[in-house]
Design a protein around this nucleic acid. Sequence first.
DNA 1: CTGTTAGCGCCTTCAG
DNA 2: CTGAAGGCGCTAACAG
Lengths: 336, 336
Amino acid sequence: MSKTSICDVATLAGVSIATVSRTFAHPEKVSASTRAKVMRAAEQMDFTVSRTAGELKTGKSYRITLLIGSSKIEWFSSAIIEGLNSVLNKNGYDLVIHLLEGVEQRKNFFKELPLRANTDAIIVSSFDISSNEAEQLQRINVPIVGINCTASKVLSASIGIDDALGIKLAIQHLATLGHKRLLYVYEHFCSSFRFSSSRRITSFENVCNNIDGMQVKVLPIDIKDDPIDATLSELFTQENPPTAICFHQDSTAMPFLFRLQKLGIRVPEDLSITGFDNGTYAKEAGLTTIRQNPKTMAEQAGNIAISLIEGKPVARRHITAPVQLIIRNSTAAPKD
Amino acid sequence: MSKTSICDVATLAGVSIATVSRTFAHPEKVSASTRAKVMRAAEQMDFTVSRTAGELKTGKSYRITLLIGSSKIEWFSSAIIEGLNSVLNKNGYDLVIHLLEGVEQRKNFFKELPLRANTDAIIVSSFDISSNEAEQLQRINVPIVGINCTASKVLSASIGIDDALGIKLAIQHLATLGHKRLLYVYEHFCSSFRFSSSRRITSFENVCNNIDGMQVKVLPIDIKDDPIDATLSELFTQENPPTAICFHQDSTAMPFLFRLQKLGIRVPEDLSITGFDNGTYAKEAGLTTIRQNPKTMAEQAGNIAISLIEGKPVARRHITAPVQLIIRNSTAAPKD
DNA sequence: CTGTTAGCGCCTTCAG
DNA sequence: CTGAAGGCGCTAACAG
């Protein structure tokens, strides 16, 4: 029950508590012989220095908190966790995770945050916190670094893709193939959650409007609707249906691909499809998409956070991560 | 920089630190008027009671650690995190995550665990810790609960599916359809990581051997091989090729489905396929599979862990979670 | 190289 | 209902 404390070890080893402390914190400052003695005693008693207690003294918790703006962990967040885990582990930090489920919990979280936060840094992944929330976050007075989170000026650092550029790559690819009628499909998120990726949508329209003869429609899908059904409905009720569909993210494109197959509509012969992310199975399914690499972004974000915590210099505080068009088999020249 | 402490608030509010402490810990024990005074002062200074400091006194960290035996977060682990997050949040606990990447890091982790652990409980997800590791874990003297982790007797509690039953359901389904030649495909993990799901493999052979006229082959795939190529090779080089393939998990079955499609091999007309998990896109792809529900398991594991921590009674310490056969469109009677 | 000492921020008796 | 005082386990000067 009661964990053995540094005192117990000191007694058993016949040294002072300071020496025990040193043996663990700065082994080089202790003579080999006493170090051995202490270690032996420690092992014997299953002693384990309490990070918590040290924290009180040093003010560092060796803990970094990841905030995710959704109750679901999809491909993107998984990669973020992987990337952070590897960097933090290497540097002796622990990773604490908070998923914000729904509006209410989100509100609560930001209100009570101070109570719960004992963290050296906060990493906000992939959703835009409101300026109000940002202000609350700032209160706890640690570095805040954003990943694909652009809204706020409170970020100590940030890394993220250029969503506008990403979607532009997809459009240009389709334009080059000869497509003149595009449909953009995205799922309409709950209004209280603004995702940085929403920038893609406006970008899409802007870019297309600057291409001669390009006709464009944007289809927002209500959260309660089935995106596949809604898209199909749109596709089959138009006089001049689109020859290509750009999905806001792979995770909507993929199920659509399955459905088309069932319906006997061939991709890319009858219809071209693009995604965004290069997520799960995108490669295997042959989905043309825009690649972003969240794991790498997370690693960079983690490194920056640690530098900020430890007062080391960081070369660049705001980084734009690369996106890349991956051409596979879901796009081709239109039939007509 | 220096966070405001309880003293600052006490001074500002003109009360003692004890009163401030009480205002937050036991508000009902403080008169309404002083409570208001304290709260005002606290807000004014952005005061936030430090969990860490309290921890020292109470011995509880309000933190639970999740151990994942892989550096990749796939569908399963994502669901585990989601489930734990929701339960822990509700009860005021934080979730700390450790991915064990590779053998070496794993060894290190278990060796240094004591140093790093300041946690109220440990949850081991989906890999079997060795008895040696279990012993090391036990040293830190907190409840350990396993999810799909059966190997060790050190678990304070556990929840997991019956892998043998799961695979049996798939076999029976295929047998009923009339299949006589089955192939079981699994990826051969690094030997140092034993996963609880390995039980499926031996089960598969056992069950099939008890079915009259059932021919069976098990195909382990080397970690360096491409599972799809290896399976195809097996499929096309046999005199009497299998009429159905059982994949150890959906995540191998899915890419195989894509490849078959490209090759013009029809599922289920030419070949039946089963998966295991009901993972990402399994539904959309129409994959017949065995469903397990990791999110629910995680919620139960979380609740049990909390009960154990808080000394509440737990009804059942070792729970078998349900599996279910989900019949979709990837299985049918064999042609011949 | 080792021991002594003074807290880190909070909680909890115990008096008042 | 409120205040004073003693730690929780450890670290970081400072002495020796």
